[in-house]
Design a protein around this nucleic acid. Structure first.
Lengths: 222, 222
DNA sequence: GTCTATAACTAGATAGAC
DNA sequence: GTCTATCTAGTTATAGAC
């Protein structure tokens, strides 16, 4: 009676289990450096079994990367659709972005560092979705300017900067770190408002802005 | 008389040639996905010849990554050592960072995306150097605050954001793109000044600030 | 310095039994 | 669904001739 009894660990949702572990390992060692064997071992099945759920390794990566962008675009579009002041919209977009990256740092980061490993087809699809997102962010900035509330240095460059540094939160935020998720979100929103020169607001207003955005984000996410 | 005559392509500095091509290929396909065979082929020598110049693949990566951080720290420390206003220092640091990333996008980006592939030893070394750099940036921000010129949301978070989005310039800046390197540098400095709430300055002053920093950067770099 | 030849190994993926 | 067994190909790196 060797190792053939599984403590099983109900295969409840194997597919989901694979996705999660893959996210972790791709994030930590990199996609190319992670082998299907290691992934299978971590999950305590044999390599061949992985191929029952996914046709190949790249497909796992693609799913992980896409799920993040999808959520990002969805959240941002919902936020933008609401009747709001430009400041509220900007705060909403930043909170959406920061919270997602803080709470799903592994998947989020893959979309920034492992795009190269996607097939041409998959890459094109993903770039299209990322461009959608970028357009939403640029739109928020330009609408704010049109409304006379923002003074922009350069809409596109500002959007790039906003997205780049808000994504970066995934690499350093820790749930038990110096700053709580609320504080981090506050800080990034305040930073964003300064970048569009809209921070004549007192701090209290900034915080109220963030709370609103968070409430909406939570309501929307669940 | 087959392929044994080289058009040679003086091996003038083979080592440097390898570094450059490696930077390109690591950047484009990723470190793990680039093989020594392909690298050798691109340079038109045999795989074994690479090992005359580098003991292994990882050493090439390490050299590329280190050279960027070294330059970054060196530039920043020189800038900070000058007698300057906080605004001038901040502008100097941002210009140093942006110009380096715009002009050496491949090597620069490796330091953000391929750290995972370094050996433990090399990683430790590099992290130490990155921390040095971070401290310089945080120092500039805190000195500015101590001098009563900056109002900071959070020094460390602001430094992270500054570094993250200024590094990102390497991924989109093109020499023949919409914005010139000067314009890009202007924009990032202006953004940085807003982030520390020091932008009561008229635009002309911002531009003068950047020009000064660029002049120093050029003088220092050559 | 650059080559040929090859060692020693590991990768992703598939066939087909249970 | 999960397994065993295996194919095919590609990987880094080295030994030693020229």
């Amino acid at each position: 009676m060797p190792a053939n009894q599984k403590i099983t660990n109900p295969p409840a949702d194997r597919r989901e289990q694979i996705r999660q572990l893959a996210a972790e390992m791709f994030f930590e060692r990199g996609y190319e450096a992670t082998t299907m064997r290691e992934l299978a071992a971590a999950i305590d099945i044999k390599t061949a079994s992985l191929y029952y759920f996914f046709p190949n390794k790249e497909e796992i990566l693609f799913e992980l990367i896409e799920s993040v962008v999808r959520q990002l675009v969805l959240g941002a579009k919902h936020l933008v659709a609401r009747e709001q002041t430009p400041e509220q919209r900007l705060a909403g977009v930043v909170v959406n972005h920061v919270v997602l990256h803080a709470m799903r740092p592994k998947e989020s980061t893959l979309g920034d560092s492992e795009l190269r490993s996607l097939t041409k087809q998959h890459l094109r699809t993903n770039v299209r979705h990322r461009d959608d997102y970028e357009r939403v962010v640029v739109g928020v900035l330009e609408d704010g300017r049109a409304a006379g509330r923002f003074s922009l240095i350069d809409p596109k460059l500002t959007a790039y900067a906003l997205i780049a540094h808000s994504s970066h939160v995934g690499t350093w935020y820790r749930a038990n770190g110096r700053l709580s998720l609320e504080q981090v979100a506050d800080a990034y929103v305040a930073l964003a408002l300064r970048m569009v020169a809209a921070d004549s607001l007192p701090d209290d207003d900034v915080i109220r802005l963030v709370r609103d955005a968070q409430a909406f984000h939570e309501a929307f996410t669940e």
